[in-house]
Design a protein around this nucleic acid. Sequence first.
DNA 1: AATCCACACAACCGCCTTGTT
DNA 2: CAACAAGGCGGTTGTGTGGAT
Length: 262
Amino acid sequence: MPSQKGAKCEEVELRRGPWTLEEDTMLIHYIARHAEGRWNLLARCSGLKRTGKSCRLRWLNYLKPDLKRGNLSPEEQFLILELHSKWGNRWSRIAQYLPGRTDNEIKNYWRTRVQKQARQLNIDANSSIFRDAVRCYWMPRLLEKMSLTSDPSGTNPNPDPPIPSHPQQVVYNAGSSDHMLSPSNPSTTCYGQSSNSAELALSPNYDDPFFTYGLDALDPATFPTASDCGNDWEGLWSMDELWQARKQHDEEGEGGGGIFLQ
DNA sequence: AATCCACACAACCGCCTTGTT
DNA sequence: CAACAAGGCGGTTGTGTGGAT
């Protein structure tokens, strides 16, 4: 049994598994005194029988004070879908655009919600078909939901979660007829109107630092409303619709147009 | 009431990158 | 320049929980 005395330089039996309240407290207090970073040193000196990696993960994913808890807002979900379509599984990079959310949280969201949909459709989540389905159905639904949750009438049963304010902020003009997002400041994500909506209808302009979508060309009115959906994922995406859409896509062939734009 | 199952999320693992000596 | 350590990242696994049967 190694003694606690001089544990700095000794091998200690490392703990694994869920963190206890006591461990959390120790970690919080140590970081309050010494700041975060130098995780291996922290692990040795704090008295925690954890690896530096484990301490870092616990702090970043759970204990850090500015973390948001609770469900992702439609705005956040929209951003995740958008950024993932651009960057793929670059979770930490995506997380930079969702203040208070961790890469782990976003990764879990993607795996449990988004990949599940792909699995159920028998589609590869990274396939173009699935990406198009996300753009054609899922994202408009989120936009719709975003407009509902910002309903000024106050009839919305789910009050708005805080909108990300840094480094980017999504602003949705709920009252506008063209269903576009507009910038309110230089760091705002802009889903603006395209001069060539046919071309940009479903294609992000990746040259734009805030990658503009021509969402005006996507008329949410043509999609069933959220309330029309069954008990599918958050009422945003009906499996029947997607099967129908996929069938249509298959029948018309890869270059045949239809709802899945190439 | 018991069991099963799916889901959400916390935590771990291994690899890669970066910084330091 | 090489070797090493630390940190970061993405993939994967383990576990608690709630709903369905």
